[in-house]
Design a protein around this nucleic acid. Structure first.
Length: 424
RNA sequence: GGAGAGAUGGCAGAGCGGUCGAAUGCGGCGGUCUCGAAAACCGUUGUUCGCCUUCCGGCGAACCGGGGGUUCGAAUCCCCCUCUCUCCGCCA
């Protein structure tokens, strides 16, 4: 959520920046500015009247004490009309506040100056790539055949238990999944992230704080009886740890890493291109989240990018890093790097991490602020997060790229975690 | 699920219709003392919005879990909601 101050002061700048995201902001901004002007006018007037009212009430108090009942009654007479005027005016204030907020939350975050214009995936900018593109023999098969062959992930059983997109990991498949989670968590710990285990259901306030609500309501599973949402990513609970909190500059950046299952309804996005592990309703992910000082948040972002990159390198997977163009970025992000790994048998790139700086977009929703030492005023922190990493496509890539005649070779770094070096 | 009690500033905890943004203690910050530290002593100490101020700041409004009501006036009285605690029940 953009701050009202920025909107008041930099209307034209916002319009320019949002063009990069192919968003026409002019009309909304003008509406916001008009509502805001009216709101301030009304508040100024009600504040004045309320002050007058408070003064008279105090006078009545001391008159009563002094036994001047007649004077007090006369003063009461004066308040009746004033009270009514205040009510008439202040009744307008709440609807105006709501209206204002409803308009402001329609505005996406401003893209960072390094973000290229563009409309979709084709316009993303390749930052760098690493690893060797895997060349597999013609006999190589995609992961959905490998998991059947070795009986390590069972989609049909998941359909029986729940529905499509809820796989059951079995035997070495389950072990591999757990090994990856532990490996990612341990690597996060080594990089200075505190491990947390948050709830995987959140309330409405948390959903709003990170920007899932009201926008992506339909993309989350909702437990209606209690009004809880199953998290689509650990970003939601972990970032909301700092909702309504005032930090001191000295404690920044705060770094947390969390493993959670993630739940996504993925309404309307199924098709032939999302076979097997490519898209699921429930999947595992380790997420890193940073709460950063605004002056240093882009250094934090670079550090997170290096961390994610190191994970992929250690797993020995070919990868590339993309800086998303304006049209492909999320509503909430200021700058996003996507990480993709090469899936040898499908012969395509699979997105395994999205690492972003949200600047103050989430913190303004969450009211997460900090104070500089000796400073009275509060400022908004910057929030960042990244997948480090999302499991299913990593598993898909490992299975496909590492397949051999005799079985699937487990990446060396994972062997201490799995307890085996081949799936056969 | 049943019965009862409660929710006040960073924490603990008073206040139960007017002078209460709120006593007191602890903590935090600044200072005195000290070679330095501790102790002691002194001072200071929330957030949001609006108006004025080119800085420093000043003035006003609101906030005592959330929402509504009574009243000239509400932390204090009434209603609803949420949450917490205690006992009972159930239970990994």
């Amino acid at each position: 959520m953009l701050t009202i101050n920025l909107i008041r002061e930099k209307r034209d700048f916002i319009i320019e920046r949002l063009k990069i995201k192919n968003f026409e902001a002019g009309e909304i901004l003008d509406r916001i500015i008009a509502i805001d002007t009216e709101r301030r006018d009304i508040q100024t007037r009600t504040d004045q009247m309320q002050g007058e009212m408070n003064r008279i009430s105090k006078e009545i108090g001391s008159m009563m004490k002094d036994g001047k009942k007649n004077e007090a009654d006369a003063a009461k007479e004066k308040t009746y009309k004033l009270k009514e005027e205040i009510k008439n005016l202040s009744d307008k204030l709440i609807p105006l506040d709501n209206e204002l907020r409803n308009e402001i939350i329609k505005l996406p975050n401003l893209p960072h100056e390094s973000v290229a214009p563009g409309h979709g995936a084709d316009d993303n900018v390749k930052v760098r790539e690493g690893g060797q593109i895997t060349v597999l023999p013609d006999s190589a098969v995609p992961h959905w055949e490998l998991i059947k062959k070795y009986d390590i992930i069972d989609f049909d059983l998941g359909i029986k238990l729940t529905g499509a997109g809820f796989p059951v990991y079995k035997g070495k498949g389950a072990r591999l999944e757990r090994a990856l989670i532990n490996f990612f968590l341990d690597e996060g710990g080594k990089a200075g992230y505190r491990e947390v285990m948050p709830p995987i259901m959140v309330n409405e306030d948390s959903g709003f704080g990170t920007g899932q609500l009201p926008d992506k309501e339909g993309q989350m599973y909702h437990a209606g009886l209690d009004n809880f949402y199953l998290i689509p990513t650990a970003e939601v609970p972990v970032t909301n740890i700092y909702r309504d909190v005032i930090l001191s500059a000295g404690e920044l950046p705060l770094k947390n890493v969390a493993y959670t299952p993630c739940f996504r309804r993925e309404a309307g996005s199924w098709g032939a291109h999302v076979r097997g592990l490519n898209r699921l309703h429930q999947f595992d992910k380790v997420e890193i989240v940073q709460i950063a000082h605004p002056d240093h948040s882009y250094e934090c972002l670079e550090e997170m990018v290096s961390h994610v990159e190191s994970l992929i390198m250690k797993l020995g997977l070919p990868y590339r890093i993309l800086r998303l163009c304006g049209g492909d970025m999320s509503f909430t992000s200021a700058l996003t790097y996507d990480f993709e790994v090469w899936s040898g048998a499908q012969k395509k790139w699979l997105e395994v991490s999205s690492t972003s700086n949200f600047e103050s977009f989430q913190s303004n929703r969450m009211k997460c602020r900090f104070k500089e030492k000796g400073d009275k005023q509060t400022k908004l922190v910057h929030t960042l997060n990244g997948s480090a990493l999302a499991l299913p496509r990593i598993v898909a890539a490992i299975l496909e790229n590492n397949q051999t005649e005799t079985g699937i070779k487990v990446p060396e770094v994972l062997v201490p975690y799995t307890g085996f070096d081949i799936i056969n």
